[in-house]
Computed example of a mutant assay.
Amino acid sequence: MARLTRAQQQERTRAAVLVAARREFTEHGYADAKVDRIAERADLTRGAVYSNFAGKRALYLAVLTDDAERARDLARPPLRSPESTGAALGAFARVWLERLPLAGDTPASGHLQLRSLSGVVDTAPTRAALAELLRLEALLLALSLDADTPPVRTADLALTLLHGAAGLAEKAPGAGDPFDLSRAAEHLGALASGPDFGPGEPPPHLAYVAPARAVREPWTPPAGLRDELTGEPVDLGGDGVVVVLGAGRLGAVREAVGEGATFVVVTSDPAETGRLVRLRVADLAGCLRRVFAPGDLPRVRIVLDEEGTAAEAVGAASDDGTETAVRVRGGEIRARAEGYGAGHAVSRTDLER
């Protein structure tokens, strides 16, 4: 029998730990789960668990992310998207609400099914990242509803409704009627064309953003990247805009979204903050894929750069506050900007001047 390589053995150990952790969290919930019991369930030492995962929080997020990515990859897209904004919001709500626990579910198993983050997002970086992720999720839903005039505020409201229902169901399983909630989400579609919940005004700071700098720098596109929304490989060898965003700046996608834009997400803490980003993006992508035809998914690319290779190619730091953008043309970096509004500045750069 052939001996396993070190990488294969590590992958097998990680898989065993995840299986054991899922059972522990299902039985005891996040707060009462014990790493020692997880190690015992996996027939491993405590040190073997910690050599693969930073701690209980990282383990819990890894379990939730594994569930979300499996659901995303199994999602079967429809042949056609819903015909109206209201119908699309209703369909999205029905898919999203499948996670609500039933009255007979235990609190621990119900929280896991809900992908609950109660007691998990309790550090300043993860709280900041979650707030930015909510803004990103609303934009991606809005772009699916209408690529030309995305109703971001309506999408914000729909997601607030769904997250509120999840919070209620977490405390009182069985509370809230999913059919009523999906109908309510459907009626929100009427707000998308109204003056109060349309696209909204651009952020006020954009008017003061300095123009991007014209440069002539070599460009070596990183390989092995994947779009988290479609699952397709990402080739950065062509012309386009690349925006590197820290987990604390993800809302800036709203300022630079456009055809051909690729958003590279980085963080100084891949084990926890990075896993939180991966979880939420995978979860949303799985829902969008089941509601919208592939051609109607957002025409932006979201890349999770845990190794920092794409950030290094752009010349950006891999920390939560990063915002660095470049425009690539003809195999060179032709424009560059850093700081707040960098993506906005580069996406509007006229290289013909």
Rank of each mutant, 00 (worst) to 15 (best):
R226Y: 10
R213Y: 02
G231H: 03
D239K: 03
V209R: 04
V234P: 08
L236V: 08
R226V: 14
V241C: 06
T220K: 14
A214S: 14
E201G: 15
D235L: 10
R213K: 13
P221T: 06
A212Y: 01
Y208L: 11
P211H: 01
E232T: 15
P218M: 03
E201M: 15
R213L: 12
H205V: 08
P202M: 10
L236E: 09
L236S: 12
V242S: 07
V234Y: 09
A212D: 00
E217S: 05
P202F: 09
A214G: 09
E232P: 11
P221G: 10
T230Q: 02
P211D: 00
Y208I: 06
E217M: 08
V234G: 04
D235W: 09
E228W: 14
A214Y: 10
A210M: 08
P211N: 00
E201K: 15
V215P: 02
V241Y: 02
D227R: 08
V209K: 03
E217N: 07
A210F: 04
L236D: 12
V209H: 02
V241S: 05
G238I: 03
L225P: 09
E217G: 06
L229A: 00
D227V: 00
T220V: 15
D227F: 02
H205T: 07
A223F: 11
A207P: 07
W219F: 04
V209P: 00
G240H: 01
H205E: 11
Y208E: 13
G200C: 09
P204K: 06
G224Y: 05
R216W: 09
V241R: 10
G238C: 07
V241P: 10
G224A: 07
D239Y: 01
P221Y: 10
G200E: 08
V242R: 10
L225N: 08
E217T: 03
A210C: 05
V242D: 04
V215M: 02
P211M: 02
G238F: 04
V242W: 06
E217A: 07
L225E: 08
D235H: 11
R226Q: 13
R213S: 15
R226L: 11
T230S: 08
G240E: 01
E228V: 12
V234I: 04
T220W: 13
E201R: 15
P204C: 05
P203L: 13
E217C: 05
G200R: 11
D239S: 04
G231S: 05
E217L: 15
A207T: 13
A212E: 00
V241E: 05
A210P: 04
H205F: 14
H205S: 10
V234H: 08
G200T: 09
R216Q: 14
D239H: 03
A207C: 05
G237C: 04
G237E: 06
G238T: 03
Y208D: 14
A223Q: 14
G224T: 05
G238H: 05
G240P: 00
P233W: 10
V242H: 06
G231F: 03
V215K: 03
R216P: 04
P203Q: 15
W219Y: 06
R213A: 14
Y208K: 12
A212I: 00
G231P: 03
G237I: 09
L236F: 13
P211Y: 01
L206P: 05
E232D: 15
V234L: 09
A210K: 14
A210H: 12
R216M: 10
P233T: 12
P202G: 11
G224I: 05
P204E: 08
P218F: 01
